[in-house]
């Protein structure tokens, strides 16, 4: 298949950046989106041009590195997929594909399609973990956990921190990411010990980092490659109110 790519090129965080058009011929519909970009980069390098910089790591859909905004949607047109698991058969011969980096004040562009998502690490440092002694692995089995709570926590823990929720949100809010972490840990007995402090600290840091506010639009839930639900945001709000009162 032949494609026209409209890709965001930006030299560094201080440069202005602009869209550049590229044409690719005879792309195999079964190659992944990242492999298609690899092919483009090989051609650029052979022409002595700068290759397009993009984040990627595992290429198995579990690391959350490949953060690319494709045709108006984070991770492209497919449901529940990261860019590395998106295949070119989801596009048509002759398509123009618009490729942009995540856009948010808290995710500044480093170069081309690569953004700095260390604000997520800062958020986790504010309490997205358990610091009390939870014993060894066998000790975990001695603590009774309701099955529904365990399932809810496990689903929330599936978050890979890719930032698609922030990218998709019209307000660039990080509520789904923080909500997933808060409700994952608040659902389990080991996490309840620090639940109050955790939610207060993480929400305060989320505001300080310049993420937007949640207006319950739900774009995050639709675009999350791991299917993290809005129920986690409701849980975050509940935990936050409880900790404030």
């Amino acid at each position: 298949m032949d494609l026209k790519l409209k890709i965001w090129r930006q030299k560094d965080s201080r440069s202005r950046g602009r869209f550049v058009n590229y044409f690719l011929r005879e792309i195999d519909p079964d190659c992944s989106f990242l492999e298609m970009l690899d092919i483009l980069n090989e051609q650029l390098i052979s022409r002595n041009e700068e290759p397009v910089v993009f984040d990627h790591e595992c290429r198995e859909g579990i690391c959350g590195s490949c953060s690319i905004y494709i045709n108006g949607r984070p991770h492209g047109p497919d449901e529940l997929t990261t860019v590395c698991q998106l295949h070119m058969r989801k596009f048509n011969h002759g398509d123009t594909i618009v490729i942009e980096p995540w856009r948010a004040r808290s995710f500044p562009v480093i170069r081309d399609l690569m953004v700095d998502r260390s604000s997520f690490d800062t958020l986790i440092r504010e309490g997205g973990y358990i610091s009390v002694n939870t014993g060894t692995a066998p000790d975990a089995n001695t603590i009774p956990v309701n099955r529904d709570d365990a399932v809810f926590a496990m689903d929330a823990a599936a978050c890979i921190g890719c930032g698609a929720c922030v990218a998709a949100c019209k307000n660039a809010s990080a509520m789904l990411f923080v909500g997933a972490k808060i409700s994952h840990l608040a659902s389990l007995p080991q996490g309840r010990v620090e639940a109050r402090k955790r939610v207060q600290d993480m929400v305060a840091m989320m505001d300080a980092l310049g993420f937007g506010n949640c207006t319950n639009t739900g774009a995050c839930e639709v675009e999350c490659p791991k299917g993290i639900k809005m129920a986690n945001i409701v849980r975050l709000n509940r935990e936050y109110l409880k900790s404030t009162l």
Binding site: F19, Y69, N71, G72, R73, V98, E100, R103, A104, R105, S106, A168, K170, N171, A172, S173, G210, F211, G212, N213, T215, A219, V222, E223
Partner: peptide, 16 residues
């Protein structure tokens, strides 16, 4: 605050 949170908008957005 929400407008400030995304200083540069997407060229193709809101397809979710």
């Amino acid at each position: 605050q929400n407008w400030i949170a995304r200083p540069r908008r997407y060229s193709k957005a809101n397809f979710s």
